[in-house]
Amino acid sequence: MTDKAHIISYKTLLMTLLALFALTGITVGASYVDLGQLNVWVALLIASLKGTLVLLIFMHMKFEGKALRLSFISTIGFLAIMIGFTFWDIAFR
């Protein structure tokens, strides 16, 4: 990895930006459709997709080694535990 760093082409970066614009448009559009409880889930799903694009391409995670990938996934795992246990607590009060 250190000997020969990977270069992301301008084209790939631009396509990523355009995809992020498109997803932003979709999330704004979706917010005008009343889906009840589902609205927030749709918003979170689209935000996660956008976040994944930023993470993989802009933040270069797609081309990193195991140390970064696994540590990132563990962080998200801990976040999930924090969210999950909080709601578990709230649900049974």
Binding site: T24, S31, A43
Partner: peptide, 30 residues
Amino acid sequence: RFALLENAGLYWHLVDLIWIFIFPLFYLII
């Protein structure tokens, strides 16, 4: 040797990443 620029970039992308979640949760909630 561009680790400094790369790390500065990572910080900036994270700030963008957080805004990606702030935007729908606060502005688009219906």
